[in-house]
């Protein structure tokens, strides 16, 4: 059921399939992770009393599994066993990866990480929500910001006042209902 519009190109004319090497990145990374796991496991200290199965054995096994499955997958890819992208309600399987949107989204997320402690959850979450919605196509820009601000404040009050979780209030610290 993947592509009803399967004419091979998206509206922007990009080919649907990305470069064949793109798919090999994940298995190769798995193999590398496996090698790292095995190497790093040799540095785990084994106490003398652990005469049977020490703290290294399981990491060795996981590392070996990662290497083995990575190699099998790379060989499979070379033979043309490609994976199908997962179907999802809001995913258009007929288009290529939209890198600019992903970059904007990553930026919004980074903004939250940077802002949450100095400026508090209400501000940081507004930026995250507004930035994400804007990069996904919500216009004009102030509308998602406004929705985000309302959501962030409501969430802040509900979670800190009613559910007793901690969220940083930033400059609002000490203000009533913000903690």
């Amino acid at each position: 059921m993947s592509s009803v519009v399967g004419d091979g190109t998206s509206r922007t004319g990009r080919p649907v399939r990305e470069a064949p090497w793109a798919e090999a990145v994940f298995p190769v990374a798995l193999t590398a992770l496996g090698v790292f796991t095995i190497v790093d496991a040799t540095r785990i200290f084994v106490p003398g009393s652990a005469n049977t199965l020490g703290p290294r054995a399981f990491p060795y096994a996981v590392g070996a599994l990662l290497v083995a499955v990575g190699v099998v997958l790379v060989i499979g890819l070379a033979r043309g066993h490609r994976g199908d992208a997962e179907d999802s309600e809001d995913v258009d399987s007929g288009v290529g990866t939209d890198w600019p949107t992903v970059a904007k989204l990553t930026g919004s997320f980074a903004a939250l990480v940077v802002l949450i402690e100095p400026l508090g959850w209400p501000v940081a979450a507004t930026v995250l929500f507004g930035g994400t919605a804007w990069s996904l196509g919500a216009r004009p820009w102030w509308r998602p910001m406004l929705v985000g601000a309302v959501l962030a404040v409501v969430v802040h009050v509900v979670f800190t006042q009613m559910l007793g979780l901690f969220l940083p209030a930033g400059p609002l610290d000490g203000v009533r209902f913000f903690g």
Binding site: D90, V95, D98, T101, G137
Partner: peptide, 11 residues
């Protein structure tokens, strides 16, 4: 899921 959808959203 959000990243996946963002990368190829159904408009």
């Amino acid at each position: 899921e959000a990243l996946y959808v963002a990368s190829r959203m159904r408009r």
